[in-house]
Design a protein around this nucleic acid. Sequence first.
DNA 1: CGAATGTTTGAGGATGCTCAAGGGATGTGG
DNA 2: CCACATCCCTTGAGCATCCTCAAACATTCG
Lengths: 217, 217
Amino acid sequence: MLADSEIEHLDNIVQRKRVLKKGEFLFKAGDPFDAIHAIRSGSLKSYTISSDGIEQLTGFHLPGEMVGLNAVSTEAYPSFAKALETSLVCSIPFDRLEALARDLPALQSQLFRVMSGEIRDEQELMMLLSKKNADERFAAFVMNLSARYRRRGLSDKEFFLSMTRSDIGNYLGLAVETVSRLITRLQKKELIEIKDRYLCIKDLHELSALAGTSCHH
Amino acid sequence: MLADSEIEHLDNIVQRKRVLKKGEFLFKAGDPFDAIHAIRSGSLKSYTISSDGIEQLTGFHLPGEMVGLNAVSTEAYPSFAKALETSLVCSIPFDRLEALARDLPALQSQLFRVMSGEIRDEQELMMLLSKKNADERFAAFVMNLSARYRRRGLSDKEFFLSMTRSDIGNYLGLAVETVSRLITRLQKKELIEIKDRYLCIKDLHELSALAGTSCHH
DNA sequence: CGAATGTTTGAGGATGCTCAAGGGATGTGG
DNA sequence: CCACATCCCTTGAGCATCCTCAAACATTCG
């Protein structure tokens, strides 16, 4: 945690708050890397474009989270970041953040921790992708969102899915049709309820069990 | 890159060089996190144990690479690190590294870059797992090792696979049998040649094309 | 209101897993 | 040094999961 005086320093270097409308880019792959970004409200997706021109989703970003940490060692952003809905974003020039981190041990420490945490989260996702079947993946995806909303003090049982079914499928390595069928099935089992894009978790315990690593049968 | 004087500082805080024999642990999940580690020679694997007791591989570590970066924000290591062969490892107490980074801007910067790079590498792996079929995964795996050896000035066309087929399958989300069949097939196509665990890339160009993101047919 | 985009459902098929078995390599204790 | 156990690798046959293709409906937006 940062002290008030430190947060004040941070506020000073926040370049600007920017509003992105749905579909607008925070940055594109190839844009020169200059800043990392904190989501204040709304949500974004990160993706790359493969050599055959297909969108490859790498992550969703919710309020309170950072975008651009994967670009620190590069000249240019390696991915696109696009708003899934109207979103408010704060950008922080990285060179200034780095300089400030030298003077504020707590900030340096915090940055290391945030980056380390991102590494860990991705390892978890990798296991999800390499070990779990479709149902488990989707359950884990929902539980992951739930936990992230809870961490920010928002409801962990009811929230809005700002991404399309197609985005979810792309992210989880599943076909859109499979995602749609999963949702139907989990609703029939009364684990969740989805009306349009509002998701309500009916049985958090059961869903968590499904998401938890389990054997293949 | 660090200046000589900076490297000297670093050398001073390297706790010790440790030799690990095949099968020995560098650390176990749950061990208190105190240091990150640099591989001097040999190789290690990282893995977690899922709730049902199954080993879940998260990465391989080659000479010149760092282990433990995913633990910076935690009290304890979240994974196991086990030597795949006799290996030499340098451990660096993290609190001292952090302190030193405050005084050596280049070191701080380097740490940010290494961590950011790890985030990026994992995103690439995620895409591999969610988008590619078995052949593409294995080709990408071999190309990845090849590039990492090249970066360290070692041969990128011939190297030793210190991990078992089972480890590879676990890592790539494939059954051992599938890995074995893949190897047989790629040898018949004369893209690679494997004698025991010595791998020789016969057609780097073709293998690279196979590894590169391509459509599902 | 039409066009584009997103969602759902069905039918058939391919990829990769499971199960099964055999051979080879490595290591340990007698 | 051999016998035995264990681990690793390979190959085959059958099958399940999830993808592809196809079509219809819903929703959003200009």
